[in-house]
Simulated assay, not measured.
Amino acid sequence: MSKPWFRVKKYGYGAGLPYGWQGWTVIVLYAVAVTCVALSGTSEDHPWRYLAMVAPLTAIVVFVAWAKSDRPWRWRNGEED
């Protein structure tokens, strides 16, 4: 397996901070895309259009984080695997 892009959380469910430069790149591109959507004015005029544009971006980031995590996602209570 290649080097993971994200680490799983020690507490809770899902991924935490990015692990490699690829993960940070995904997060930065996501932040830029959401900022561009927000600055386009759709959030003020049509909040549902804003949601329709941001939801797929968020789904893509969640999928990439899930696929490129170092371990499977599950609920964690701080115990070591």
Rank of each mutant, 00 (worst) to 15 (best):
G23F: 01
Q22L: 10
H46N: 15
R76S: 06
T35E: 04
A65Y: 03
K10P: 06
W75N: 03
Y11E: 02
V37E: 01
Y50I: 02
P47E: 00
G12I: 06
W66N: 10
R71A: 11
G14Q: 08
Y19T: 14
W73C: 06
R71G: 00
P47L: 00
W48F: 08
D45P: 09
P18W: 02
I60E: 09
R71F: 02
G14E: 11
M1T: 11
L57Q: 14
W5L: 00
A52D: 10
S2E: 15
R7L: 12
W73H: 11
K9I: 10
Y50M: 03
G20H: 03
W24H: 13
G12F: 10
N77K: 02
A38P: 01
E44C: 04
A38H: 14
G20I: 09
H46I: 07
W21K: 15
E79V: 02
G20Y: 06
D70W: 01
W66D: 09
Y13A: 02
Y30M: 08
G14Y: 14
W5V: 05
T25N: 08
L17I: 12
D45K: 15
G14C: 01
W5T: 05
T42V: 14
G78V: 00
W73Q: 08
L39Y: 14
S40N: 02
A33V: 15
W73M: 04
S69E: 00
V34C: 14
F6T: 06
D81Q: 04
W24P: 07
Y50K: 03
T58M: 02
A52R: 07
Y50L: 01
Y13W: 10
K68I: 03
S2N: 13
G23S: 12
P56S: 02
L51A: 14
P18L: 00
K10A: 13
P47G: 00
A31D: 14
P72W: 13
D70G: 12
S69L: 06
